[in-house]
Computed example of a mutant assay.
Amino acid sequence: MMSGTAGRLEGGAGAGAGAAVTRKFGYSLLYIVLIAVAALQLFPLVWLLFFSLKNNQEVFNLPALSLPMNPHWENYAKVWNVGNINLYFFNSVWITVVATVLTVIFGSLVTYAVTRMKWKGSSFVLGLFMVAMMIPVHSTLIPLFSIFNKVGLTDHPLSLILSYVAFNMPITIMILLGFYYALPREVEEAAVIDGCSVNRMFFRIVFPMTSSVLATTAIINMIYNWNEFIFVNTFISSDAYKTLTVGVQNFIGQYTTDWGAIGATLMISILPILITFLFLSNRIVEGIAAGSVKG
């Protein structure tokens, strides 16, 4: 009897030890895979950094991942001071911020009206915004250019802001929908009983409650606006309103191309988005998870 019990205990201990070893091996394998994927994701950034510190001869004569023989940090000074990248950087910042703020505010207003207020046509309006997600951007370039040309907005930053807000509204509303549906109505009912108006209730109560999902939509909008190229290249012709995405063309000449300067420009354009994503990546996941649950 005692020997049988001892045997079962030893067998259970052996199985537990085997499971622990298997678990450790699984975690180790998972970490190796994740490290390999992270290295693969970082490869373009490392290559671009080395690329930006080379001159034309080193770009074509040295291996892609080789360190430059003499790092040309002056490439960054050249693009910032001579290539007007400082102006393009400032334009990218303020246009991105303005378009993002307007999109988040208007998207929140539309989502609140559709999900929290009862009125005829709310489903139809929501359907229009969702259908707009299926419209290809390139198919709207000529109509938009014609409209902006007639109203005098070509070569004006307002054409970019209006385009960014219009094309980002559907995805912004889609992210906000689930979160707004899940908001407890008791909070709004208590505010109405206390005499709170609809406008005040939205800006003082509902809007702050959605801060996590608003951070997600703001970051997604910011990344799109910062990296956008086709609208800037189509609507803007003067250097005064160009952004970083088209500013790189300044270093492409008819006969020669300054590849090191192009790499430095691309590196400068990537850093703000990269830093923002590193600090706010948790908010993106949190907001998407919060907006994906209804009820």
Rank of each mutant, 00 (worst) to 15 (best):
A261M: 10
Y181F: 14
M1W: 15
T103L: 11
F207H: 11
T154P: 04
S211T: 12
G7E: 10
V285T: 12
I85C: 07
F207C: 06
S269D: 13
L162S: 09
A215G: 14
A182I: 01
A264N: 10
N55V: 04
G253K: 10
T22P: 03
M267E: 05
I32Q: 11
K120D: 12
G16M: 12
I85S: 02
L271W: 07
S163R: 04
T276I: 13
A261G: 09
V82H: 11
G263K: 05
G127T: 12
V79I: 14
L29M: 07
L9K: 06
N61Y: 04
P208N: 09
R8M: 06
N91G: 03
E74I: 00
G4S: 14
V97D: 03
S163H: 07
A290Y: 06
L144R: 10
L87M: 09
L274I: 09
S52H: 02
L280M: 15
W94H: 14
I262E: 05
V97Q: 00
I205A: 00
G127N: 07
L266K: 13
T22H: 10
E58A: 04
L271A: 15
V110H: 02
L160H: 00
V37L: 10
S146E: 07
L183Y: 10
M130V: 11
F50N: 07
L102Q: 04
A39W: 01
L274R: 09
I236D: 08
F235T: 07
V97F: 06
L49P: 01
I275Q: 04
T217Y: 02
E74P: 03
W94Y: 15
T5A: 10
V98H: 00
A132Y: 08
V104E: 05
P143F: 05
I230G: 05
T111P: 01
